[in-house]
Write a protein that binds this DNA or RNA. Sequence first.
DNA 1: AATGAATGAGCTTTCATTCAT
DNA 2: GATGAATGAAAGCTCATTCAT
Lengths: 221, 221, 221, 221
Amino acid sequence: MKKKIAKQTPSRSALRRQREKEQRYNTILRSAETLFAKKGYHQTSMEEIGDLAEVSAGTVYFYFKNKEDILITLLKEGGFHFRKMIGDAFRQADASVEGLKNAGVVFFRDFCVQHPEKVTIIFREAVGMTEKVESVRKDLFKRMTEDIKQALLRISEKLDTAYRSDLSAELLAVCIAGLYGRIATYYLIWDDRSKDLMNIAEEAVLFTIGGVEKLVAAKKY
Amino acid sequence: MKKKIAKQTPSRSALRRQREKEQRYNTILRSAETLFAKKGYHQTSMEEIGDLAEVSAGTVYFYFKNKEDILITLLKEGGFHFRKMIGDAFRQADASVEGLKNAGVVFFRDFCVQHPEKVTIIFREAVGMTEKVESVRKDLFKRMTEDIKQALLRISEKLDTAYRSDLSAELLAVCIAGLYGRIATYYLIWDDRSKDLMNIAEEAVLFTIGGVEKLVAAKKY
Amino acid sequence: MKKKIAKQTPSRSALRRQREKEQRYNTILRSAETLFAKKGYHQTSMEEIGDLAEVSAGTVYFYFKNKEDILITLLKEGGFHFRKMIGDAFRQADASVEGLKNAGVVFFRDFCVQHPEKVTIIFREAVGMTEKVESVRKDLFKRMTEDIKQALLRISEKLDTAYRSDLSAELLAVCIAGLYGRIATYYLIWDDRSKDLMNIAEEAVLFTIGGVEKLVAAKKY
Amino acid sequence: MKKKIAKQTPSRSALRRQREKEQRYNTILRSAETLFAKKGYHQTSMEEIGDLAEVSAGTVYFYFKNKEDILITLLKEGGFHFRKMIGDAFRQADASVEGLKNAGVVFFRDFCVQHPEKVTIIFREAVGMTEKVESVRKDLFKRMTEDIKQALLRISEKLDTAYRSDLSAELLAVCIAGLYGRIATYYLIWDDRSKDLMNIAEEAVLFTIGGVEKLVAAKKY
DNA sequence: AATGAATGAGCTTTCATTCAT
DNA sequence: GATGAATGAAAGCTCATTCAT
């Protein structure tokens, strides 16, 4: 609205304020993430989130519409981060079986181990919440599955193979997403076996490859 | 005031009362199950549970310690039911690869399709609740995984094969449990593709077998 | 729901409980009325209402849906009471000019003086609240006005006279309701001149009659 | 740093600034008036007022002490406007019965129809607010009533008549103010019958005159 | 003068749980 | 055994107001 005409560059202090605002937004988001992962969504109050971020509960409402909004933001952020990592891994491996391996390793080593709170939010705290959260989560998983499916299709194309049925590619994607998710829950959230994780990743990838091969129908000529 | 001392056999009416009590207990449990699956745990109040069971909220507390107790009961009950089904399937197949197939089919056809509310509770409503619920759930999944692991070990023993590493059997179990769970969520809770379920089950079993074979090291002599 | 068959009369204790429940409902309603009239609707918290009624704030919600519901109940109750009084006064006076006098006296002497809190609620606290309250209030005033209008029409019929225009009867009713309302506000809520009220009532009635006569067109043959 | 000592005449730009300041004050006041009339005082936030006036919420506080202050300003402003109009009408009619008619017409035609938001604020939004607002409103109505009373006294003096009792003049004023207020509420705020307003005004004036005559005791010699 | 981020008091409301009857 | 009235703690949220910039 009120803008001084002919002011091309925002002032120093305006820039600093903008920066501070973003920082605060992030501080609050990180506080919520930490608490949701540690104590659970319903066991965390807005005041606690404020406390940890060193602001008042009212301030939290300046940055987020409501509590649900925080969770959704966290879920989307985590999901975006996750998809980007996996996607990059695939792209680097140039649509080969190698890509499947890479993606698995990246998932465990670079996502789960580095961001256990994100894993907890995506796979535990955002489950069975409100309808809105559930739909965001569903959407996220649909996209993840689609990502994997597309990768599988690219691989099969490159290798000149076809899948057993129309279902296969999607189902494979669902299975892979499912088993990776469970491994994360089982070996990170429930027990901390992060030191074994590379072995686990290796065998998980083998399992995946074995499964995928089983659903390949035949070599196309 | 007459009091029958040393009453060996319960009277008719005592028996009837006992029976009615059990019925009521079940009615309440089923009401809660229905509502938890439909509206979610937190969105369901004790009064609603009572209403659906045609008793007062107070009465619910006669049968269950508290709301959490209902969820835990439901979780244990569903888990028990589930394990029994799968276990029986394995036993009937006499610890063979056939058993793996059977178990998969039973899981989808006889458990998921027949008891979608149980699936919803185990895989959605009981996730990320209280610590106590979480620990029961964790315990349930550990047992499930152990069941599968034992089945896998029995199969390999019978076939005179060995797994790739000490981890393998457990990891396989985790993977299988994970992918089956996700399929249930994806194809039943999120979208209703129950009519495709037998095809899905078939390919899921194939995937599983392919994965398992990949982690078999070698034939023992 | 649960009802013992063949139980004609409710038990003593059931009756007593029913009575107590009604009493409590009334106690809460009276507490709210008192506080709304004394401190104003927005300045009164649910907890204060509970306190005065010697129950917890939670209990207030057992009897009323929310705060607005209390105000609406009070408004309807007051309006009903009011209309009944005035209506009876008219009926007793047998649709004559005498009726107009009676109604005026009854309004001031039996309603305003006896129930000043109701006056305050109807003419002050329920003004300009939520849309819902406003619509109830509007409805109440429309009915009051209609009551007066009908009374005026009956009088004119009996006296074989007609009003100046189609508007007249309604307008007269609006005027009468308005001036009575203001007198109540002015001489009771703003200043306590209740000891002069009978003189005020007398002159107000005279004013009213003078005004009504002015809008009578002519004697019908 | 130069500083002009003893600055007699304000500079051009100071004048402009002064003018802009007054404009802004008015813009804010008008925004508040519009919103209070449309949505109600409590349903309007300071930020909304700022938004409509194209300033920030903080700026509103530069021009007004607080929210209540805005309402009081509006109430006083509306009241002043109103009294001035009616007063002028009386003065022009030279203290005659004609004056009563004029005032009525002016009230409906020039005040109510032209400034419906002011009517809404005076007769609805400022009712039953804080003590302070209530006292300003009371004060306003006392002045209005006094105005009317003085007009009535001047008329009676000029016509060489006297009122029935000491109360009469004041009571008449109260009645007139009351019935006019209610007509405005009934035919403008509740239903929009502004097209019938001149007929309504005519009959309302007749009613008034009829009422006033009834309280005239006798001709003085 | 103007901004808008920050505050924090205060409110309504919900609901699991208890307990006298 | 069953009821349902009563509780009270806890939470989310709103918003008038302040103040550094």
